[in-house]
């Protein structure tokens, strides 16, 4: 235990008897929070941007780079808001993306490969984890959701492409297929058939009118960064809203049925716990 830890315990006025309870509670809340963050991050991403993440032949220059950051930053922002407001813990974004990545890999192995025989090369996921680390780090440095949204969310959007290109670039090498040039990613998608996902169903770049000197990927990354700012604020707000600790008053009958007798029944109705203020 560090000096700082002892100082925190001292301020919190816990007795030596209560400290083990407190540590037990820490562990339990970590477990509940981890399951929650994992679940909500995955279901949210899955049905808002999942298709681009499932398949290597959906990872295009226009939508993949735009959509993955904006569909993952939302839960990163909400969980960041919750953990920061309640406990000043700057781990919400990182936990959201880390557990999402973990869950994704589990499913890629057990289901895509294990159930339907698809090779992992078809279903490698991307990740915004590096952006999430930046988001949390900037929150620590700035102590401000306003500043974090302005700089962290921008970096979150911008970093996705380069951080993933490091290991995805090889899939975009040119290769010949039936006499036509295509990419390795396309070839993988073509080779391992998906009856429910015909080629035309891919929502991908169907041709750029102006490629801005072969930099359409960066154009998408910048647009993604722009959208990330707004979504970060909106979903930080949702996180704050979710921390509403209100109890609605109930009628006498409800109180009696639930074992509240006598004058005590009138006590504490609607007494919400004090809500900590938002940062900055």
């Amino acid at each position: 235990m560090t000096e700082n830890d002892r100082a925190i315990l001292k301020v919190s006025e816990l007795s030596s008897r209560a400290i083990p309870w407190s540590r037990t509670l820490d562990v339990l809340i970590i477990v509940v929070a981890a399951f929650l963050v994992w679940s909500v991050s995955h279901i949210s991403f899955l049905l808002l941007g999942g298709d681009w993440d499932f398949f290597i032949d959906w990872k295009d220059r226009q939508y993949w780079i735009l959509i993955i950051p904006i569909t993952t930053i939302i839960m990163a922002a909400s969980f960041q808001a919750i953990f920061w407001n309640l406990f000043r813990l700057p781990v919400g974004a990182t936990a959201s993306l880390l557990l999402l990545l973990l869950g994704t890999w589990i499913v890629r192995y057990h289901s895509w490969q294990g159930l339907a025989y698809f090779p992992l090369s078809l279903v490698v996921p991307g990740t915004c984890l590096m952006g999430a680390l930046v988001l949390d780090a900037i929150l620590v440095l700035s102590r401000s959701w306003l500043v974090t949204g302005m700089f962290g969310a921008v970096l979150y959007g911008l970093l996705f492409y380069p951080a993933n290109w490091i290991y995805m670039a090889g899939y975009f090498q040119p290769v010949m297929n039936m006499g036509d040039m295509t990419s390795v990613a396309d070839l993988i998608g073509y080779t391992f058939p998906r009856a429910g996902t015909p080629e035309y169903i891919r929502i991908i770049e169907r041709g750029t009118l102006r490629t801005f000197g072969d930099t359409p990927t960066w154009v998408s990354a910048f647009f993604s960064a722009f959208v990330c700012i707004f979504l970060y604020y909106m979903f930080w707000g949702l996180g704050v809203l979710a921390c509403n600790a209100r109890f609605f008053p109930v009628g006498e009958r409800f109180k009696l049925i639930y074992g509240n007798k006598g004058k005590a029944a009138g006590k504490a109705v609607g007494a919400a716990a004090a809500q900590p203020g938002a940062a900055s």
Binding site: S22, L25, L89
Partner: peptide, 9 residues
């Protein structure tokens, strides 16, 4: 670190 209740307090 001491986490939930200590930080809360």
């Amino acid at each position: 670190r001491p986490l939930i209740v200590p930080r809360w307090n």
